[in-house]
Design a protein around this nucleic acid. Structure first.
Lengths: 351, 351
DNA sequence: TCACTTCGTCGAAACGAATCGACGAAACGA
DNA sequence: TCGTTTCGTCGATTCGTTTCGACGAAGTGA
């Protein structure tokens, strides 16, 4: 292995000088810098990450807590992971994966061993226990989704997140409300909302409960003019049958907002089975699908702003790390709530 | 930070003794061990990963090279990542993510800095340049997919992989061949095969070219009895129109094997648009979808054996690391080619 | 010319754990 | 009783960096 010592002797300088060239933490003359750089290139030197970490106590690594694999896997999860990784690299960080399977002990292990400077948590639930653990461990972090229960809005219409842990998220409540309101505005008089899977609602995942809250708000707001049916959070096996019952009924809705994204193909299959054409007979409006994924046909939709969320959450955790290093409060870096955008709204038009 | 020294003085022993208790590399008396363990628990000691790594030159980390995010993202990728992570933990390894975006320089950075003991590459292409780089770097590795071009089978019917880099993969050629042969056996006389996306074929991804090879073999084998149409690898935008042309033709196939998994919803939408009912008028047979993902309706299918692949590839890379450590050839740990299984075959029956 | 900066570089001391050689004490056989 | 082995523990060194204090050589002003 090539070390700084080798580079130093090759360049005819002290080992510490090589370090200064690399870190830039002291002025070095042009002549010396060039000699060192040449020696580095000639020897193919790469600094040892573990030695650097040991001495400096900075790992340049972020831990990313992924959700569960297996049945609970959602196609969006991997896309988030990849884009978080790219965003982190742009800030000079690598990303170490943790899975739901390891849970809280995994976070403890990581923080205890000093393997990461900060953490990003995916699939955050209301009052997520991991948040308390991270605070206790003193590890800077930011969340994808918030641990706050959906709450009342302030005077300016914005939700109050003071004291909440740093996070980036789509405003799911606003998204669902926008979808339903827009459908009503386009002339649909029978609306329905299909929430996330029962397991996600039961697990109080932020996106799931906030979507429900938004649907409730929309139902209330539209109460005078339009009926909004809030469907039960579906169990995977029961979804198809429930949809058949819903869509087979003569008083069926004409527009269906679907936050249960992995259920979109099932919705389309059920519609077909009931002899309904999409979009002529039934307007299907997915919320939170991956950008570019139009489920095989053009649909009005609200996509998941993956890149915005991942760049934002990365910036937040990087800022939290900096604050932590400066002795300030890493939890005070704020949050980013992303406004939903309705795409292909012209496809909403009622039959 | 609590260090071994603190534990040692608390337990009234030498620092080295604490180390021996932890690593188990020397006999320690029961009495001393208990005292040390108690001190560890009382102080909440966690060994410093960077110090351990620096001294022992073992990181207990695997690098996982993920495919590209953005447009090229496949829902399967994230599932692989999560399950690789779980499998690695079972062997005591953590997983550091690298993305396609960083490419070969990313691997060099990782290996140069000594950040990982081994690497796993996803979405491997024929003659993948990353393989040569890893060999050059002397970093143990295993692949998800093989870099070998599909080749002739030996006398025993098994493909010859001697000299190939260690890998785990579904036998994609056998999978496609099985799908088409089974469809023919179920009475279908007009078969078609939809390969992976044009971009994947052009990029010579192993699964894409091997699937095509299997389709070619099946077409040849069935030539006497059944016509097998091999469709062109579709461009994303053109897929729907091409399917309409295919399925709108009176001489349309009655069974369609679909390896282009993200295209399954599009296939179903096109079938519906042509007034075809699935499975009565058209048998759709997806190959390589995520386990449990039945695209919203029961379909005969060959699932992606994610867990088998990830556990196997992890075992291979762990074995390669061990071999490397023992001065043996890390490339000689073999491979695992997984036989495809056809699920819900009873749904194949021709209308 | 002399005191005094400023600049660039050097040597040495950490960081926390693994590991090697050494060394006392107990156990053993003769 | 004495030498010899075995067992358990200790001290010291090492891994490759970062970083601090120090120190000559130039540069500055009087």
């Amino acid at each position: 292995m090539v070390t700084m010592k080798d580079v130093a002797s090759r360049a005819g300088v002290a080992q510490s000088t090589v370090s200064y060239v690399l870190t830039g933490s002291r002025r070095i003359s042009e002549r010396t810098r060039l000699a060192v750089e040449e020696a580095i290139a000639e020897l193919g030197y790469h600094p040892s990450v573990s030695a650097r970490t040991l001495r400096s106590a900075r790992t340049q690594v972020l831990a990313l807590a992924l959700p569960r694999g297996g049945d609970g896997y959602r196609p969006t999860d991997g896309r988030f992971a990849i884009e978080v990784c790219d965003a982190a690299r742009a800030h000079g960080y690598d990303v170490l994966m943790l899975t739901e399977r390891e849970g809280v002990p995994g976070l403890r292990r990581m923080a205890g061993g000093g393997q990461a400077d900060g953490a990003i948590l995916m699939a955050v639930a209301v009052d997520d226990p991991r948040v308390a653990v991270l605070r206790e461990l003193g590890l800077p972090f930011a969340l994808l989704g918030t641990e706050r229960a959906p709450g009342g809005r302030g005077a300016d219409g914005a939700e109050d997140f003071s004291g909440a842990a740093p996070f980036a998220d789509l405003d799911w409540a606003a998204a669902v409300e926008l979808a339903l309101t827009a459908a009503a505005g386009a002339g649909h008089t029978g609306l329905a909302y299909l929430p996330c899977a029962a397991e996600e609602v039961a697990g109080r995942k932020g996106y799931a409960v906030r979507g429900l809250a938004g649907a409730g708000a929309a139902a209330e707001r539209l109460a005078g003019s339009t009926r909004v049916r809030l469907l039960e959070p579906p169990a995977p096996d029961a979804l198809y049958e429930e949809l058949l019952a819903l869509l087979g009924d003569p008083r069926r809705p004409t527009a269906l907002a679907v936050q249960h994204v992995v259920g979109v193909p099932t919705v389309l299959a059920a519609a077909e089975a009931c002899g309904l054409r999409v979009p002529e007979d039934l307007c299907v409006l997915p919320i939170g699908m991956l950008p570019g994924d139009t489920a095989g046909r053009p649909l009005p939709r609200i996509e998941l702003p993956v890149t915005e969320m991942t760049t934002a959450v990365t910036e937040l955790v990087v800022a939290a790390i900096a604050a932590h290093g400066a002795g300030e409060d890493p939890g005070a870096v704020g949050h980013r709530l992303i406004r939903p955008a309705l795409l292909d709204a012209q496809l909403l038009h009622a039959g």
